[in-house]
Amino acid sequence: MKSAPGLRSYAILYLVFLYGPILILPLFAFNNATVVSFPLSGFTTKWFSEMMADQALWRALRTSLQISLSTAVIATALGVMAARAAVRYRWPGKPGVMGLILLPLVLPEIIIAMSMLIVLIWLGAPQMWFTVILGHVLITLPFSVTIMTAAFQSIDVSFEEAALDLGETPISSFRLITLPLVMPGIISSFLISFTISIDEYIIANFLGGNDTALSVYIYGQFRFPAKVPMVLALGTCLVAMSILLLTIAEYFRRRGVARVGGKDSGGFL
């Protein structure tokens, strides 16, 4: 490979810029001072103890898990349907329908949140964790569809045709042949939807009513400067979890690519 020292040092600086703020997170989460500022004043785990003892935080986490797990299941199921229909079948109106399903990718979340809120108010429906799921499925569905489209596209149609020729029904051939082949995509879609949902703030805030999700709880702590180190401790845990889930998602995505003999061409998104 050619070498370019200038570009390489720029690339490293760029990664420092990207990761700099995230690396500060554990540094001050273990720092024995309320004020987040250099010099560091000593090691402590008290912010983590404070976090573990916070009842409101645990309630928010439970609400968020409820929302995010449901969102991941529903979005992935709908994503499988849409991607399968788009890849496998020809039907009129496909570009329009798929365009509409992918549209939330480019719409500001505040517009999605506000327009749904107006309709909920109009219908007299309550705002609670369930209504947050409605919004989260909408914004995670495009990601699921994109991941599942790639997964279905990489399968050779002749596998399924062979199964049909050998006497399987369309449903059993889907279950026995197609589903195992796209399983890495399904896992990847599930984890991505979960990660987006648990981190999302705007929809959770406006559609959640009195059910406080984790991101909304964290936002509320910003009013109290003394709570900042505790928020950083919580952030350390959340970021560690996100990176773990993403690494698993990436592992399955690559295994899916490898399984069907494709060439790896970069990550999702």
Partner: peptide, 20 residues
């Protein structure tokens, strides 16, 4: 993958960091 990871971490937490 390395370049996209920070995008997937909680935005609210990143905002807390930028404030500090």
């Amino acid at each position: 993958f390395l370049i996209t990871i920070p995008f997937w971490t909680s935005y609210i937490i990143r905002l807390a960091l930028w404030r500090t």
